[in-house]
Write a protein that binds this DNA or RNA. Sequence first.
RNA 1: GUGGAUGUAGCUCAGCUGGUAGAGCCCCGGAUUGUGACUCCGGUGGUCGCAGGUUCAAAACCUGUCAUCCACCCCA
Length: 447
Amino acid sequence: MSKLIQPPKGTRDFLPEEMVLRRKVMETIRESFALYGFVEIDSPVFEYFELLSRKCGSEIEKEIYVFEDKAKRKLGLRFEFTSPLGRYYATNAEKLTKPFKRYIIGKVYRYENTQAGRYREFYQADADIIGSYSMNVELELLDLAVFTLEKLSMGNYEIVINDRKILDGIINAAGIDESKKDAALRALDKTAKIGEAGVIKEFNENGIGEGNYRSFMRLIDLDPGLDDAKKLTALKERINEYVKDESIKNKTNEGIEELSFIIENERKAGACEGLNVIKFDPLLVRGLGYYTGPIFEIKSKDISIGSFAAGGRYDNLVELYGSRPEGACGISFGVERIIDIVTERDKDIFKSLSSPVRLYIVYLSESERTSALKTAKFFRLKGINAELSVSEGPNIGKEIKYADKKGIEYIAVIGGREASEKKLTLKNLKTRKEIFISAEEAAESIK
RNA sequence: GUGGAUGUAGCUCAGCUGGUAGAGCCCCGGAUUGUGACUCCGGUGGUCGCAGGUUCAAAACCUGUCAUCCACCCCA
């Protein structure tokens, strides 16, 4: 394919039949959000670069699409919804009812190398709650996530959860210097991928000793037979033993309490009731710098494509954009990855989704044109998506083939006989049966 | 940003140690002028990703470039 007719790197065109599924997935997410009482907002696709880059880390900053407008303002395309949300909240705080529960579904942009499930332009769906420090928020968001994923038939998945406060405690207890915390966490996050030796190597490269690694691992080496609540208690005792600093100790204990509360209640009464999908993992880190409390990630157990939803608490967010401090927590769904998983799980899904067009109307000669136009309008007013043939001198065989290829279920034929009797021949393309009925009757059977 | 693989018809791919392209599916027409998924017959369709280079000769070899996939990085 020549360069000119290719979409730019990392972007894609979607065919009508793909759009049916995409729309369905996004509508399902939208409906779930609404069912949980979130209201929809929108904000610009681009913001001032300075705003986007504020406290997002240099790695992410490299991924922002930057451009100048004609007045030389430096702008960037949003790469996620959290920083735009911070700005949105700061701008509109007085008009918003708190706690502010909002959702947004839209395109975000990242200048990075593409891979399966990774694009430069992709949809994200975010639900956030600003204005509460309560763990009830986490409970609600996780509940929402499970509810949505069940509606999407996502198969087997797992919610991995951890808390930044606990991580800070373990880091401190393992004797890792505060200044090297980020590097240590980044390496530890990769444990499953690069193994013990890999992590130690990264530790060394960042001037952190193997001893620190061993201490860290010893601290989180908990009896696998214990349930998460007991693991958390055991971990708490160990950390408290090694941490000298009182404030860090308190923070850690806070984190332990937060997680215990979330896991216990979610299993007891939330959407996770009876499902063993929430799992504490002391090695879950998550990238973005702004998380301050519980963090979580949702992954498919059937298909390895990375996490398809993630989130956490970032109590310092709105402060960063000039508002009074408020508790904030959110979850983000990777729409593209969800679609990839749904498609992967059911390869024939496109065939099972019918066209948004319900009826195809064909007339056989010019004398039936008026009658066909009126019939089409009749169905449209009834709320039935109807396509009227635009071919001249229609060939009935070809018309049927066309409608069938487009996945339209019904075809209405209007010929001389139909026009004179003010009826139509309605054919169901799946069952191949046809009946000679009035438009009213046809509308009933199509609905 | 780094490393690797790949790029041939709308799609999936074949094309040997260099001798200027083929199959299946799709599509179009006909058998079948008010009835489509099967069958049969015929047909359209390719600057071999793009640009250079080597050669009498390049889809093939070399270089660059663009894109896709994979592994890093990071993340939805």
